[in-house]
Amino acid sequence: MGRSARNKVARQKRILEALQANAAVRVGALAEALGVSGETIRRDLAELGSEGAVSRTYGGAVAKPILQEPNWRIRHGEFREERRKIAQLASDLIAPGDILILEMGSTVMHLAELLSAGGRDLTVITSSLEVALTLGRNDSIAVHLCPGVLDTREGSVIGAETEAFLQQYNATIALVGSTGVTREGLQESHTGIAAVKRVMLSRAKKRVALLDHSKFDQTSLVTACPLGAIDLLVSDRRPEGELAAALEQAGVEVRV
């Protein structure tokens, strides 16, 4: 990612943080706070609006609905160091000859980047176009891309065709992300993604969730699956309180 793109990701993250803190913010106030022109802010808001991250208003914007998430490209720029470490730890679980199922999501993309650079003799089944393209740069990784209905915000496919395609595979490890994790289970803001996640986890011998600490105790639209549907949680911090107790009761190993 070039410097200009990194600056834009950081700026848009700060815009989202300002909206979460103040609900509604004017273009002029954002421009002054971030040290850029009003036109730059308007372009950022237009892009965030097209991705469902904010709602535009006359002269400004308001915070996104609570159950929605920003486009995966914006999320990919958040908690980068933590997510890289999670991806590195997850990569230690993978050996040549493994058959992987990889979901979409920002932390899974960090893992895909690592595997593209150093993975050998792997077979990967994925619903994510970006994961498939990233892994496709490595000639020793065979990539099977799921068919289905394209979700442009997430860069992945969903639907009955996706689920049926996944049912034919037997994987060594499934690695998934999630909108959040609570004592009820893995959370999702999209019912179609939740359905694909359930099938992915059901087709693997080892089931792994890759979640940074910002996802702890975050509830969303639907509980995709109970905690018992995963074997291992890889994170940058150890969960505490009710979540820690629920993970232990469900027999989920936690690696930090």
Rank of each mutant, 00 (worst) to 15 (best):
G52V: 11
Q68A: 07
W72G: 07
L201Y: 02
A87T: 05
A10F: 05
A5L: 13
L102N: 02
A24P: 00
A132N: 09
L175R: 12
S116E: 13
I86S: 01
G2H: 04
Y58P: 03
Q88E: 07
K64G: 15
L150I: 12
D217W: 06
V234P: 10
L166R: 04
R83G: 02
E47L: 15
A63M: 09
S91I: 11
A23N: 15
G192D: 06
L122R: 00
R84G: 13
T162R: 14
D212E: 09
A5C: 12
A112W: 00
L93R: 01
A29K: 14
Q218R: 15
E248Q: 04
A53R: 13
L122M: 01
A171V: 02
L115C: 09
G136T: 05
E240G: 09
L150D: 01
D98K: 00
M1H: 14
R6I: 05
A90L: 03
M109L: 10
F216M: 08
L227I: 02
E81R: 11
A245K: 12
A171N: 07
E163R: 12
R80Q: 03
T162G: 06
V27T: 12
D121P: 05
K206E: 09
L89S: 14
A160D: 11
R237I: 03
T162P: 12
V196E: 11
R26P: 08
A87I: 13
P226M: 03
Q168A: 05
A10Q: 15
A244M: 06
G105W: 00
L133Y: 13
L45E: 00
A229R: 04
V124S: 09
N138I: 04
Q168D: 09
A229K: 04
G2P: 07
A244Y: 02
A95G: 06
